[in-house]
Each structure stands twice: as C-alpha cells, then as structure tokens.
Design a protein around this nucleic acid. Structure first.
Lengths: 191, 191
DNA sequence: TCCGAGAGCTAGCGTTGCTAGGAACGAGGA
DNA sequence: TCCTCGTTCCTAGCAACGCTAGCTCTCGGA
C-alpha cells in the first residue's frame, strides 16, 4: 500500500517537473522551441514518458496555462488591493495585467492566445482564471454606469487590454507609446 | 523579347495562383492545413516551385496578408462612407471590422495575429494597412477630446476591437454577447 | 542541327508529434 | 529462494513538416 503511495507521489512529482520544465523552456525560448524531445531531455526521461502523463503536447501546454492563471490572478489581486483607493484600482489592475503579459509572454500566450483545448468561457474554466477575471470586475465596479452589465463591461475592458498587449507583441503597435494608450483607455473606462 | 515578356507574365500569374490557393486553403481549413505539399498539389506544380517564387512559407503568408489588407481597407471605407452621419461612422467602421474578422478569420489572423515578417508599425507597412487604419482614424475624429492624440486614440480603439475579435475566436469570450460588448465599447469611445 | 541556359522535377535531409513493441525491474506467491 | 507476472520505461520507427541539392529535359538562339 505504501509502495503504491510512494509511486503515485513520485509520479505526481514528475508530472510537476514536466510542467515546470515546459514553462521554463517556453519562457526562455518561446513555445516553438518547446518540442517533446527537448522537454524529455530536460526532465531526463525518454520522450514517450511524456505521453504517459499527458495526452499530447497540447495537454502539457494546457497544464502550464492553468498554472499561469494562478500567477496572473495573484498579481492582479495584489495590484488591486495595494491601490490606495477604489478609483485608482482600475488603473492598477490594468497596468498589472499588461505588465504580466510583457514580463511573461509565453505564459500569457498559452493562457490567452494559443489553442489549448481548455474550457474558457464556461463555469468549468480554471478557477484561477475566474479569480483573475474577478479582479478586473472589482476594478471596474465603481465605474459601471446605470443599467450597464458589469460582466460585459469587464469583458470589454479585458478585451481592450488583450488587444493592446497582443498587437504590441506582434509588432503591430509600437511599444514605446504603450503607457499613453493605456492611459487613454483608462480615461474612457473610468466613467 | 516578347518571349521574355510572356514568361514573366506567366510567372506573375503563377505567383498570383499560389497566393490565391494559399488564401482559399487557409480560409477553408485554417492555416495549419496549409502545407507546402498541399499547396503545390493544388497549383499542380511540384513543391520546390513555391520556393522559386517565395523565400518560404512565411513569405507566402505575408503575401496573403498584403492582399487581405486591401480587402479590409475596402470594406472599412465602404462602411464608413455609407454611414448616414459622422456620428454613426465609428459604429459602422467598428462593426465592419469585427465582421471582417468573423467572416474571413484566416485572412484576419495572418494580418493581425500570426508572425509573418512584414513591417507593420512603420511607414514601410503595406499601404492598404495604412488605409485601413485611416478609416478608423476618420471614424474617431469627431470623438477625440481636446488634447487627445487622434492617432493614439485610434490605436487604442483598434486594439479593443482586436481584443474582442481574438478572444472570441479563441473561445475566451462567448460569441453570443458580441454585439452588446461592441455597443459598450462604442459608448465609451463616442465622447 | 546543335548548344547552353533555365525551369521544374525527383529524391532526400533534418525535425516535428506521436506510437508500437520489447526489455528490465520489482512486488507477491510458492 | 526462486519463479511469475504486471508495470514502467526505452529504443526504434512512422508519417508529415519545411526546405534544398542536383539531375533532366525542354526550348530559344546561333
């Protein structure tokens, strides 16, 4: 029985190892550099071992995405609660969001841009993702107009942040004016 | 001399053929289905012929993107000039933009999401892309506040549209509420 | 009629994600 | 103590990918 337990524990540890290795590799060299062979080499096991833990590369990316949601939610909450007043919380959360995207692009991409077979716009989505969205909701709550759906308003604000971030990372928008665009966006959403 | 001319004409036609084949294939089955082998089969030439026209698959995608910019610019201009008044032009352009993204997702992706080695946020960017951006600028002009940079405001509005579109296509936002989110965005940008 | 340039083909390289099949290890029973 | 059987993990390989080397064959020009 305890042998079984040890095996399961070791297996869980190795699974964690795969996820962190994939995350590190992606952040260091981008997702296109994350191949199953390099990943296997990094965890010092053979390639097929990955497939005994995950259905495929996509499932590994999904696992990294779930971990990433936790980090993002933490950072957004920290930013919001550290804001001096409710009025500046929106700006704080927005800045934290784009900072996360800039600082951890691979993590951001796998959560919000890549196709990773995870439930998103449903209750089954990762709890941390709902938590992250909740931080945006709280940031916007004081600025929702009468009769405005707070959830929809948050989705729209979130989409704007996402657009700024992805267009910038894809070189469609010059990075140097990012702060001023963020400022403009805030002015439009702070009613 | 005329032989030379005929050859160059045929070559140009074949190049066009490659681009339209890539575009059609991408729109029918997505860019991941566009392989050099399938493309070659489709144009009824062997694979290496593609490389005598384009440096690689990326260059083919870039060519498709340039074509796509022309279509997008046309549709945005049509929407804006058909708007009854300057006040509704912003809504018209925004709706036309997201409609384009929804109707021609492969084209939209290659222009705005994929990595395609094209100059974007510079004067060397495709002229049609500047034209498309110009339509957004004109839509926003009546709504720019005093001291607001119209260019930056347009970039921000554009980013918001882009975010709505990409999050929806990536299943991060439910499609059914799209119209209401667009409405909310418009209300915030129509000063 | 012959030659040479060039266009386009076949074949193949290295890499990708993923899988089949066998070897080796280790727990449990005789 | 030894055998057996199940599990774990590795070697090897498949099909498909982007891309390229090198040969063939056509065809315009002398």
């Amino acid at each position: 029985m305890s042998i079984q337990a040890r095996r399961e524990r070791e297996r869980a540890e190795r699974e964690k190892l795969i996820i962190t290795a994939a995350c590190e590799l992606a952040e260091a060299e981008g997702w296109e550099a994350v191949t199953t062979r390099r990943l296997a080499e990094r965890i010092e096991y053979s390639q097929p071992v990955l497939y005994s833990h995950f259905k495929g590369k996509g499932a590994i990316m999904a696992a990294v995405a779930v971990e990433g949601c936790v980090i993002l939610a933490d950072e957004l909450r920290a930013a919001r609660t550290a804001a001096p007043d409710a009025g500046s919380a929106l700006a704080a959360v927005g800045a934290a969001y784009t900072a996360f995207a800039e600082r951890r692009p691979a993590l951001y991409d796998v959560i919000f841009s890549q196709n990773v077979d995870l439930p998103f716009a449903t209750p089954e989505a990762p709890a941390a993702l709902h938590a992250a969205f909740g931080e945006l909701v709280e940031g916007l709550r004081p600025h929702a107009g009468d009769g405005e759906d707070l959830g929809l308003l948050t989705e729209t604000y979130w989409a704007a942040l996402h657009g700024l971030v992805t267009l910038m990372r894809g070189k469609r928008l010059p990075a140097e004016q990012h702060e001023r665009r963020l400022e403009l966006l805030l002015k439009r959403f702070a009613a």
